[in-house]
């Protein structure tokens, strides 16, 4: 019972803290910092999508960037064609989710083993990278949106007030939306994992054979998790695209590798960990970039190796351990 109370307190604190942060941060920070953090939050949502698919679904997806990039392109193309971003929202979620469902159908119903799953997802991402790279000519257009090959779609429209394509939202409002979307996604995942579906998903990660012998269809559950993760990554792509731009680099190895590292460093098998890992590492990378004498990507590799060796379970489990241990010390040893 006490555990339940603590969990409730944790949820409330997270919710209130998140909302307060959403409205408070832009008031104190510079416009530049606000826009930067919006960007980081988009990528944190991207990390959260992989945290769900990999950490709880047990699906080692090396190609999560495929859905991120598709979401970004889908948003940009829809927003340009509609002249309004309202319907670009569902488009940016549904297109990558449908793509994930189709890809997942072949992988899970074809009973691909984990290693091949990783190879296939990675390959698909790189194919998309090549595909969008080769759309430079003016003939490659969807409606009013030119795909633009290597350069992508440089002037993606920012979010606007629903149903009013000319009323662009301010960066501060967009920041609030980004925080709320991330919180909603986080709570959505937490809720999902407490449902029967979520618990079965975790049991499949633990032992697919046993889950199957209990009468659960492993394929359907994995496919559903993969599709949800694809939709979330697409939503992250939307937030990123409206803030920055859209180009084939979204499908590149850089993004697909980075998100895996964020999840590992933050803590595989947790949800909050990858969010923190993502934001934290983005800031570390940005800071290292300003130093000039060290290659940030190299440093990221070193950080990954260090974590795998010394903190294999990741940042968040470490923090939890330190806090509970500290609390026990304060209360006097061994009370709980």
């Amino acid at each position: 019972m006490r555990a339940r109370r603590w969990r409730l307190i944790g949820f409330l604190a997270l919710l209130l803290g998140g909302v307060a942060f959403a409205f408070g941060f832009p008031a104190f920070a510079s416009l530049h910092a606000t826009i930067q953090l919006t960007n980081a939050l988009a990528l944190a949502l991207f990390a959260l999508s992989l945290a769900l698919v990999w950490g709880f679904g047990g699906i080692l997806c090396f190609g999560q960037a495929a859905f991120f990039g598709l979401g970004a392109y889908a948003y940009a193309i829809a927003a340009i064609n509609f002249g309004d971003t309202t319907f670009a929202w569902p488009t940016a979620i549904l297109v990558p989710a449908a793509f994930a469902a189709a890809l997942g159908y072949f992988m899970f119903y074809g009973r691909l083993s984990d290693v091949y799953l990783g190879v296939v997802t990675l390959t698909v991402t790189l194919i998309l990278f090549q595909l969008f790279n080769s759309t430079a000519g003016p003939e490659y257009r969807i409606g009013d949106a030119r795909l633009g090959g290597f350069n992508g779609i440089p002037s993606t429209p920012p979010l606007n007030v629903p149903f009013d394509g000319r009323a662009y939202l301010s960066p501060e409002s967009i920041f609030v939306i980004a925080v709320l979307v991330l919180l909603a996604a986080l709570f959505g995942c937490l809720w999902l994992l407490r449902t029967r579906f979520g618990r079965v998903l975790v049991s499949i990660r633990e032992n697919p054979l046993r889950a199957e012998l209990l009468g659960y269809d492993v394929r359907v559950h994995k496919l559903a998790a993969f599709t949800i993760g694809g939709g979330m990554a697409g939503l992250a792509g939307l937030l990123f695209a409206q803030n920055v731009l859209v180009n084939p680099a979204l499908f590149s190895l850089l993004y697909t590798a980075q998100v895996i590292i964020w999840v590992i460093v933050g803590g595989l098998g947790t949800l909050v960990g990858p969010i923190l890992g993502s934001i934290g590492l983005q800031y570390v990378m940005a800071w290292l970039g300003t130093l000039g004498w060290i290659n940030p990507n190299l440093a990221l590799g070193v950080i990954l190796v260090a974590f795998v060796l010394f903190v294999p379970r990741g940042l968040w489990p470490l923090l939890v351990k330190v806090v509970t241990h500290g609390r026990r010390l304060v209360r006097g040893n061994g009370t709980s």
């Binding site: 975790v202 049991s203 990660r205 633990e206 032992n207 054979l209 046993r210 012998l213």
Partner: peptide, 8 residues
């Protein structure tokens, strides 16, 4: 060979 969910 017992087939259970070891991590749960």
């Amino acid at each position: 060979v017992p087939s259970v969910f070891d991590g749960l």
